[in-house]
Design a protein around this nucleic acid. Sequence first.
DNA 1: TTAAATATTGAATGAATATTCAATAAATAA
DNA 2: TTATTTATTGAATATTCATTCAATATTTAA
Lengths: 214, 214
Amino acid sequence: MKQSIREERKKEIVSGLYELSRQEGLENVSIAKIGKHLGMPPSLVMHYFPNKRLLILGLINHILHQYQLIYKPIVSKLEKKPRVDPELLVERLFSREWNLLFDDGVFFSCYAFIFRDQLIKKEYKKLHVKLRVTLKNLLDKDEVLVMGDTGLLAEKIFVVIEGAYYYLSMMDEAREYDQKLELFKDQVYELIYAEISRLQTGPEMGKSRYSTGG
Amino acid sequence: MKQSIREERKKEIVSGLYELSRQEGLENVSIAKIGKHLGMPPSLVMHYFPNKRLLILGLINHILHQYQLIYKPIVSKLEKKPRVDPELLVERLFSREWNLLFDDGVFFSCYAFIFRDQLIKKEYKKLHVKLRVTLKNLLDKDEVLVMGDTGLLAEKIFVVIEGAYYYLSMMDEAREYDQKLELFKDQVYELIYAEISRLQTGPEMGKSRYSTGG
DNA sequence: TTAAATATTGAATGAATATTCAATAAATAA
DNA sequence: TTATTTATTGAATATTCATTCAATATTTAA
């Protein structure tokens, strides 16, 4: 009980920070503003987060946790199928649900911290590796793909996804956004189909020289 | 003459902002600190940049300008050749010179502004489109590639480059960095070689349905 | 030379910043 | 119950913030 109120309050504060960051940008949020937003004195905020860095670390954990949720529905939907359906996979990887779960602006503001905070960098990397492993596990369910280097394929797919979202964030018009989105989906299709056809026509080639699997 | 001292001072101030941002992070730089760093009163800084937003816009212009310089040596080297040498092209696109010209931390801190400043978003997009056009023009010099959709190919290449740098920024160990880098280079090679072989074996297929060419 | 425009200075502003502290209220453990 | 830990409050801190202003110096135009 004693512990739970503490954790609840911490979550509440981090959520408040997130909401304000979304509205006015992370760099414009102060401890006083968070307190005001939540109806508590700034000293209470600092009671749970003794300094601002810890507060931002809390926000980053929150965001990284949200980020992981994106793949929950994808994973559960795909796990039921006996084979990987590339159409469904790609559709889900580029799904709009992505943008609804958290704010890209806050995400990239936090991302910028990786260049000056080793712990944040580590957390970010951990997440990104995890997402790749999740995808690899999905690809391993496919009887054809599993013969190749699914870890490598997952890397290649994700670099397109991440590059795509980086670039797509600059698009204003919905039409242009959708057009580019289709293009990048196509690029991922091609990666998957190329691997399938490679494995079916010449499986004796074995794994690629740039294998990432342990 | 009168104009030049003004522009020089503005450049000096922006450079100071850049240097400080590199050292302690953009969010920790103030007008007073810039003034101190350059040995001038903060009021002089504000004389040239009446508010902080204009100052940051100045920094962004500076960075985007630097960003463009990266491709100067690539372009001039490749322009002399009659054909595109994929090895050289990919080597240059992923060159280390990239990291030397400007700081990734500052770049991504500024990038985060695109989500709350339309002008900054526009500037960023303009640059990224420009880089793609430059690459397209290079690809057009190749007698085989020019038969296909070079604009589309440029998009596909850049999404890998950008995704790669986003992801590589999280790497600590040099070995892992290099390993992943090779992987992404490979991915770009495959894009180019796949397009070449596609055009040579079945050029009657013409341009892809996701053409980006105007 | 004189007048106007620009560059530079330094002092001052109030608002906002993260953080500290002592006091009180509430919950839990003994 | 009492003692102890935790939660919450509100006032206070020194510092830093972006910005303003009037005064002076320097450069340019007439």
